[in-house]
Simulated scan of single mutants.
Amino acid sequence: MKLASEKGVVIFSKSSCCLSYAVNILFKELGVHPLVYEIDQDPEGREMEKALIRLGCNAPIPAVFIAGKLVGSTNEVMSHHLSGALMPLLKPYQMS
């Protein structure tokens, strides 16, 4: 949770995961530059993945946090985006 609160938008990702890549691209296209933790390149990666599962991530990667709160994985992020609920969450973090 400490890592998830370090910046407004944090994504726990794996460098080889296409869904992680897609979520990262979505945020960049929306003008947000998230802090990305590539857990497969971190010595604590396995522990991070276990912690994400304990927090309620059904699919632990990618795990998206906005303002320190778990939004979810790809399905939840895309559902928020399609329903129009994602942009209000991201507004404070958009680059001008």
Rank of each mutant, 00 (worst) to 15 (best):
residue 11 I to Y: 00
residue 31 G to W: 06
residue 15 S to D: 05
residue 53 I to D: 05
residue 26 L to K: 04
residue 28 K to Y: 04
residue 75 N to T: 09
residue 31 G to F: 05
residue 67 A to N: 13
residue 70 L to H: 12
residue 25 I to L: 14
residue 2 K to Q: 15
residue 46 R to Q: 14
residue 36 V to Y: 00
residue 35 L to S: 05
residue 61 I to D: 10
residue 20 S to L: 02
residue 34 P to D: 05
residue 18 C to E: 14
residue 58 N to K: 11
residue 15 S to P: 01
residue 20 S to D: 02
residue 22 A to N: 07
residue 70 L to R: 13
residue 24 N to K: 13
residue 63 A to C: 08
residue 23 V to I: 15
residue 39 I to G: 02
residue 42 D to H: 06
residue 32 V to N: 09
residue 25 I to H: 12
residue 25 I to Q: 15
residue 69 K to P: 01
residue 79 S to F: 12
residue 71 V to S: 02
residue 55 L to H: 09
residue 31 G to T: 06
residue 43 P to K: 12
residue 48 M to S: 03
residue 33 H to F: 14
residue 70 L to Y: 12
residue 75 N to H: 07
residue 25 I to S: 14
residue 75 N to C: 01
residue 73 S to R: 00
residue 88 P to V: 07
residue 19 L to A: 11
residue 78 M to C: 04
residue 8 G to F: 04
residue 6 E to I: 11
residue 91 K to D: 12
residue 84 G to P: 10
residue 77 V to E: 02
residue 32 V to Y: 03
residue 18 C to G: 12
residue 82 L to M: 10
residue 95 M to A: 14
residue 8 G to R: 01
residue 24 N to D: 06
residue 90 L to G: 06
residue 68 G to N: 11
residue 62 P to R: 04
residue 62 P to W: 02
residue 71 V to Q: 11
residue 39 I to S: 02
residue 30 L to D: 02
residue 26 L to G: 01
residue 94 Q to K: 15
residue 40 D to F: 10
residue 88 P to R: 05
residue 54 R to P: 00
residue 78 M to D: 01
residue 9 V to R: 10
residue 71 V to T: 10
residue 62 P to L: 01
residue 55 L to P: 01
residue 94 Q to G: 03
residue 89 L to C: 05
residue 90 L to W: 05
residue 25 I to M: 13
residue 93 Y to R: 03
residue 49 E to D: 13
residue 37 Y to M: 04
residue 64 V to Q: 04
residue 36 V to W: 00
residue 26 L to C: 03
residue 24 N to R: 12
residue 2 K to M: 14
residue 57 C to A: 14
residue 54 R to N: 14
residue 66 I to S: 00
residue 59 A to P: 00
residue 35 L to Q: 09
residue 51 A to V: 07
residue 42 D to F: 01
residue 72 G to C: 11
residue 90 L to Y: 07
residue 65 F to Y: 15
residue 87 M to V: 15
residue 61 I to A: 09
residue 83 S to R: 15
residue 7 K to V: 13
residue 96 S to P: 10
residue 7 K to G: 07
residue 11 I to L: 10
residue 50 K to W: 10
residue 39 I to V: 12
residue 31 G to D: 08
residue 34 P to K: 06
residue 31 G to Q: 08
residue 54 R to T: 12
residue 10 V to C: 04
residue 87 M to D: 15
residue 16 S to E: 09
residue 51 A to W: 12
residue 22 A to H: 05
residue 41 Q to V: 01
residue 64 V to F: 04
residue 32 V to I: 11
residue 51 A to T: 11
residue 68 G to V: 12
residue 81 H to T: 03
residue 96 S to V: 08
residue 35 L to A: 07
residue 35 L to V: 02
residue 27 F to V: 08
residue 47 E to F: 09
residue 63 A to I: 00
residue 36 V to G: 00
residue 50 K to F: 11
residue 58 N to A: 06
residue 39 I to W: 01
residue 85 A to F: 00
residue 96 S to D: 10
residue 22 A to D: 03
residue 24 N to I: 00
residue 79 S to K: 11
residue 37 Y to N: 04
residue 80 H to W: 14
residue 35 L to H: 08
